[in-house]
């Protein structure tokens, strides 16, 4: 995988996720682009490149996601998105042999599932930090509502994933992925 292309795609994803995709919100369902990119990378890149991609994506999303805490300040925590992305990658990479990656619906649905898995890691990481005394970014006692919101977001992401995966397929050759069946892809 060509790193500059991945970094460019990552920056586009983080920009669209942070500043634009709210335009597609329906009700409380807000789509996210990064699970689609993550699914695309995990299904096409070599395993190691996919792992590094997931780690980089999680770190970047953590660094651009300051969390408000009581008192009006914000804190930056590395961990929730990183752990979430690694968890999602660990689910996606074994599936690449069984998913028909040219099928945009399959990629879209899997992107939604990856977002749900990412959210599990995200909630887990914040819960651990909560045990250590840090504030958590949801209303205490209302974590169910936050998780339900994640489910609707996953549905919206799956819908968004369909056209985006089509678009990514068009530009697949730019990414320099190893060919299917090659040794490089299995490493």
């Amino acid at each position: 995988m060509r790193s500059p292309v991945f970094i460019a795609a990552l920056l586009v994803a983080v920009l669209l996720d942070s500043a634009f995709l709210q335009v597609l919100t329906i009700g409380g369902a807000r789509p996210w682009l990064f699970p689609v990119v993550l699914a695309f990378v995990c299904f096409n890149a070599s395993k190691l490149a996919a792992w590094w991609g997931a780690l980089g994506m999680g770190l970047l999303y953590d660094l651009v996601s300051p969390t408000p805490v009581p008192g009006g300040a914000t804190i930056v925590v590395v961990g929730p998105n990183t752990l979430g992305c690694l968890l999602a990658a660990s689910a996606a990479i074994p599936l690449r042999g069984v998913v028909f990656k040219r099928n945009p619906v399959a990629v879209g649905v899997l992107a939604g599932v990856l977002l749900l898995i990412h959210q599990v890691g995200w909630f887990a990481s914040w819960t651990v930090r909560g045990w250590l005394g840090d504030p958590v970014p949801w209303i205490v006692g209302k974590v169910g509502a936050a998780m339900l919101g994640s489910f609707w977001a996953a549905c919206a992401t799956a819908l968004l994933g369909i056209p985006v995966s089509l678009l990514l397929d068009r530009v697949e050759r730019w990414w320099g992925f190893p060919p299917v069946g090659s040794v490089a892809r299995r490493v």
Binding site: L59, V77, G79, T82, L83
Partner: peptide
């Protein structure tokens, strides 16, 4: 990354905030 993720904010918060 996992170690940093569980470090208290008072230790890593400043550096991470700057980054």
């Amino acid at each position: 990354a996992l170690v940093v993720s569980v470090l208290p904010t008072r230790i890593m918060g400043g550096v991470l905030g700057d980054v």
